[in-house]
Amino acid sequence: MTEHSEPKPYDVEQPVAAGRDEVWDAVTQPPVLRQWFGWDHDGLDHEIQQIFVDEATLTSPERMGWPDSSFLEVTGDDDRSTVRAVRIGDPAADPVAFDAMEEGWRVFLAQLRFLLEERPEGLRRTVHLTGSARGRGVLALADGEALPLGTRTAQVMTADGQLVLVSGHEPLDSPEAGRIEVVVSTFGLGDDAFAEVRDDWTQRWAALAREAVVTVA
C-alpha cells in the first residue's frame, strides 16, 4: 500500500449571483460568516475567529490562505462571482476518496450561495444531524428536489424555505449505510417556531438513522 505524506487535493468551486466585493465581505467579516459558515454550536464564534481571522493570511486579489497551503479565493465582477476552496495536496492520493474538508466546503459554499442569492431575512438558526443512514433515505426525508453537489453532497430546498445540506462519507446513491451529516438552515424564526423545526427533524432523524445525534445552539 502506498503511503501519502499529504492529504488529497481538492478544488471546490461555487458560482454566486452576487458581486465580487459583496462575496469577499461575506468570507472575511465574522458577523456575515456566522450567517452561512458551519452550523450552530457553542464554539462557532471561536471557530470562525480562528479560521478566518487568526490563521488566515489575506492577499490580493481577493484570496485568503492558510498554513497548510490551502486557500479560498473570490473572482468575478460587480454582478457574478465564483468562490473556490483549493488544497494542492498529494497528486498521487486517491481522487475519489472521502475527505471531510472537501465535503465541508461543498456544504458551506452552498450555504453562502443561498444567503447571497435568496437573501433570507433574519438571523440563521440551524439543526445539525449526524448518524448512520443511506443517502437516498436521507434525501427523501428532506422532502424536496435534490441538487447534487458532487457524489457525496446534495442540497435540498424544502417547501417552507429551509435549506438542507446532506453530506455522506459514502456516495449518496450507495446502497450501503454510512455516516451522514445534515445541516438544516432556517432564518428569522422565533424560539417557538424554531423549536417546532428542531423537534420535527429530531423525530424524523431518530426514526431513520442509527446513532442519531442532533445539535443546536
Rank of each mutant, 00 (worst) to 15 (best):
P95M: 10
V23E: 08
A56M: 06
D54E: 15
V74G: 04
T57N: 11
D68L: 11
E47F: 14
R87Y: 00
G38M: 14
G65E: 09
V86P: 00
V74C: 04
A97S: 14
A92N: 11
P30H: 09
L58I: 10
I48P: 07
T82E: 05
D68N: 15
I48R: 06
S70Y: 00
T82Y: 01
V32R: 15
W24Y: 11
G76H: 06
R80V: 07
I48D: 12
P30L: 08
G89H: 10
V53P: 03
T59H: 09
T57Y: 02
F37V: 12
E103C: 12
P91E: 01
T75P: 02
A92R: 14
D40K: 13
E73N: 00
M64A: 14
H46W: 05
W66L: 12
L72C: 08
F98Y: 14
A97G: 08
S69Q: 14
G104V: 04
I88F: 01
V74S: 05
F71I: 06
D21L: 02
D99R: 02
D68P: 11
G65M: 04
D78N: 09
T59N: 09
L33M: 08
D40T: 13
W39M: 03
G43F: 05
Q35T: 06
F52R: 08
D90V: 01
Q50V: 15
W66Q: 09
M64S: 14
M64P: 12
G76M: 07
D90A: 02
W66S: 10
G76S: 05
T82A: 01
P61G: 07
A97Y: 03
G43S: 11
F37Y: 15
D90N: 03
D21Y: 00
R63S: 09
D77F: 04
E47P: 02
F98P: 01
S69H: 12
D54R: 10
Q50F: 14
V32I: 15
G65C: 03
A26C: 13
F37C: 13
D90E: 01
G38L: 15
Q50A: 13
P91L: 03
A26H: 09
D42T: 14
G38H: 15
A26E: 11
E62W: 07
T57F: 07
V23L: 06
V96R: 05
L58H: 12
V83G: 01
P30S: 13
D68Q: 11
R84I: 03
D77H: 04
R20C: 07
Q50L: 15
A100R: 01
V32T: 15
D79V: 05
P31A: 07
D90W: 00
T57M: 10
D79E: 14
P95Q: 07
A56C: 06
V23P: 04
D78Y: 02
P31R: 07
V96W: 04
L72I: 11
I88Q: 04
H41N: 07
I88G: 00
W39G: 04
